[in-house]
C-alpha cells in the first residue's frame, strides 16, 4: 500500500497534467472561444499541452 501511494505521488505531476491542466486548458479555450490549432478538439489540444508538461514536471521535478 505504502509503495503504491509512493508511486502514485511520484507520477502525480503527470496525472495532474492530464487530470486537471488538460481540461482546464480545454474549458478556458471554449470560454474565450479560441479555436485549437491543427483542427484539434479543445480537449485534444489540452492533453497535448497538459500531458507533456506533466511529464516534464515529473522528470525535472519542477513545473518551469
Amino acid at each position: 500500500m505504502q509503495n503504491a501511494v509512493q508511486a502514485l505521488f511520484k507520477i502525480m505531476p503527470f496525472l495532474f497534467g492530464i487530470g486537471f491542466i488538460a481540461p482546464l486548458i480545454a474549458q478556458t479555450m471554449s470560454y474565450w472561444e479560441w479555436e485549437p490549432p491543427l483542427g484539434l478538439s479543445p480537449i485534444g489540444f489540452g492533453l497535448l499541452i497538459g500531458g507533456p508538461w506533466g511529464l516534464y514536471a515529473t522528470w525535472r521535478g519542477r513545473w518551469l
Binding site: 486537471f20 480545454a26 474549458q27 470560454y31
Partner: peptide, 8 residues
Amino acid sequence: MAWSGYAI
C-alpha cells in the same frame, strides 16, 4: 470537477 466540465 475538471473532467465533469468544471475545471475553471
